[in-house]
Design a protein around this nucleic acid. Structure first.
Length: 290
DNA sequence: TTAGGGTTAG
């Protein structure tokens, strides 16, 4: 018989692999569970099935297990992704009742929750009432404003963070670059953000490159964009080629668009998106010539 | 800090 820690680890491992059915089967067969086991399963459902995550949270409570800090984090994430505003508020009350409102991890999850629900003032209030504000908490607040289309405010909070002496991490940079590309910055201001990542020796991920590609595409710098797609230290994925193809469509660069479309077809011969984009583009060019 | 997800998106 496997012990509780081994089984819990297996539930988590399968959940991380994306095999929720196996994770659930192991969980269901466990002769006994504890708070961590419940927390792991609640986490597992959080992003893609917030409702099930919430049901499990209630069941855990009914079976007499006490939620821990990480359980609150997991279930608040479920509330964010399921847009379960009323449930999230009740969980917030429970956090207050339990005297856990000064916990930085729960605080970040609450800022994220209220931010995703569009309640920015509440998010801001929770942020400022926490005993300390670290880079993760700042990033959660920046993301909240960006998520609701308040891009200048998101960038202002980023500057506020830097003034407070908090260094950005790689997640902050993705969040800020994404805010820039959604219209927060005119011109090439985003280049300073990339330089900052470089200066602070942050490891750039594919997500960073995708943000920069988006920004280059929006400013019509197709040559730089194509260079970046083909020379970056990551294998370009469907998103990367689609970014290039969409940017070419905007400008009407048919040759470059054809190269991107060919790559997309190589990656997925059933994909219809490249055909649709290309044919729209030909139609657009033809209309312009009329 | 004994097994666990505080912040990145279309």
């Amino acid at each position: 018989m496997r012990d509780i820690i081994t089984s819990t680890t297996m539930v988590d491992a399968y959940a991380q692999l994306g095999d929720l059915a196996v994770a659930r089967a192991i969980f269901d067969e466990m002769p006994e569970r504890n708070s961590v086991t419940w927390s792991v399963l609640i986490s597992a459902y959080g992003k893609n099935n917030g409702r099930e995550s919430l049901r499990l949270f209630l069941r855990m409570d009914l079976e007499g297990f006490r939620a821990e800090e990480m359980t609150y984090v997991a279930v608040l994430d479920a509330c964010s992704s399921a847009a379960a505003v009323a449930e999230g508020r009740i969980i917030h009350e429970s956090v207050l009742d339990r005297g856990l409102s000064r916990d930085l991890r729960i605080g970040s999850a609450l800022v994220d929750f209220y931010g995703k629900c569009g309640q920015l003032e509440t998010a801001r209030l929770i942020f400022s009432e926490l005993p300390i504000q670290d880079v993760i908490l700042w990033t959660a607040l920046i993301t909240s404003y960006a998520h609701n289309g308040h891009l200048p405010e998101a960038l202002a909070i980023f500057r506020e963070m830097l003034l407070a002496g908090i260094l950005p991490d790689c997640v902050t940079i993705v969040s800020v670059l994404s805010a820039c590309s959604h219209g927060g910055v005119e011109g090439d201001g985003w280049i300073h953000v990339v330089r900052m990542a470089w200066d602070y020796d942050l490891e750039l991920s594919l997500a960073h490159y995708l943000c920069v590609m988006d920004l280059l595409g929006r400013s019509g710098k197709l040559e730089l964009l194509e260079d970046l797609v083909t020379s970056m230290p990551f294998e370009p994925d469907v998103v990367a080629w689609t970014t290039l193809l969409s940017a070419c469509k905007e400008i009407g660069d048919e040759r470059r668009a054809a190269r991107a479309a060919r790559k997309l077809r190589e990656m997925d011969s059933n994909a219809m998106a490249p055909y649709a984009l290309l044919s729209n583009m030909h139609a657009g060019v033809a209309n312009a010539e009329d």
